[in-house]
Design a protein around this nucleic acid. Sequence first.
RNA 1: GCCCCUGUCGUCCAGUGGCCUAGGACGCCGCCCUUUCACGGCGGUAACGCGGGUUCGAAUCCCGUCGGGGGUACCA
Length: 492
Amino acid sequence: MSNKVRVRFCPSPTGDPHVGMVRTALFNWAFAKHNNGTFVFRIEDTDTSRDSEESYQALLDSMRWLGLNWDEGPEVGGPFGPYRQSERMDIYKDVAKKLYEKGFAYHCYCTQEEVEERRKAQKEKGQTPGYDAHCRELTDSQIAEFKCKNREPVLRFRMPSKTISWNDLVRGELSFKHEHIPDYVLVRANGDPLYTLVNPTDDALMEITHVLRGEDLLSSTPRQIALYEAFKEIGVGKGITPDFGHLPYVMGEGNKKLSKRDPESSLLLYRREGFLPEGLLNYLALLGWSFGNDIEFFSMQEMADNFEISRVSANPARFDIKKCTAINADWIRKLSVPELANRMEKQLIDSKILPNSPSPEQKELLISATPLVQERLETLSQVPGMLSFFFVSESEFVVDKEDAKNTLTQDLLPALEKSVKLLRDIPEFKTQSLHDELNKLLVTEMGLKPRVIFTALRVAVTGRKVSPPLFESMEIMGRDKVISRIEKCLKK
RNA sequence: GCCCCUGUCGUCCAGUGGCCUAGGACGCCGCCCUUUCACGGCGGUAACGCGGGUUCGAAUCCCGUCGGGGGUACCA
């Protein structure tokens, strides 16, 4: 069991969770499940200036909403905890010390300005800019001199002079020459450990075997691999370097990476807009991965069963809201009626159309209305607009002005009057007989166009041109409500 | 500038030397169904960035070129 797959998802709690992040989490999750491995959830909150408790909570909440359950991590625990980096500072301090003592890292006294200036000079000469190893071999007297100037050193990693290559899980063989990977900072002058140190440290300590992360981390991989080799020497972790796989970007409109700042990248937005976690995840899975056949509609479990990392594409994918919506609509249609009704209920409560605890009658009404809208919903946010007419009281009910224009016209009033009479007398207030009788009266006898008169009735009864099927809606509402609404129109 | 990644319909994905006159999905257009809108059904639209090779044969291999993205931090 020692070669068990262990992967991690390790976001920073800064700002709202976004869809690119979800995609990364999903692929890690699927990879873990597929390989019967462990999915570790770790919080990288070492940057106190940017992290917030609020984001942290939003992160956990989002992961739970999506159903991306973790085997180890916050609130779940596990043998490698704690899983929040802010609680692991002593560990990093210790690793940094070992690195320094064994000569894998050194103190660098250069100021940021000095480094920047030399970088500029390198650029002008057409060289790869980067730290020039200035402080690699300082003498004691040089160090003493810096100390006199009250300079606090940063801790820099001593990159080995060799080409570093690895077989990327999604991109294949990759290699970087040592002159392009300068010595980099592990610990700030003020003592704060950086991502460059804490991320590999925790991966090593948590015995992570596969690192699946965004393409943006691609260029930092060689330095991490070198760090792992040092870890092996100083006994941090089990001495294994994980396999790396770099996932392509999720792009927004145009050609830019979907960043946290883009509103359309916020997971919360999609949640608010009434996307189902199933639908969103299904769509995100398609961004960079496929079964290899033409199947595009699948559950997370099916994805996990079939997830091959080698099938992940390396090219960036644009997030297409239209397709995401289409898949979401498929998922809505796939839900069972009680399940959909349940989710719609939440939506209706949130938009104040239903009270916090709906009455049994309201619940029943919702259940019977659900099949009528199931195939016309794309997102849950459309529910209130489509169903409110069922629930509002007669005094609150209003006909949409725009929709009434050109549909509820003067010349149709006689027909509506006759309809009311018919509705009052019809023995069976059921879909079929309503359809038959109204059709007979209005179309056959009065010679009206079905399209015209039924649209008028629809607007009168539901308040909208677009609504659940008319006769079904009438049956569900019941005789009194239907008649009262038509009469209301007649009075005007 | 330097380094790295990447390049098939508008978008996402399929395609790893002949099954490709390039397939599916979303979008868009048209038709059918129909009491509106949808749903569903049917059909259409539309792509291998470019130039050289290699080969009997290339979207698939090689070289070049152009384009897109990222990195080049005491960010991640």
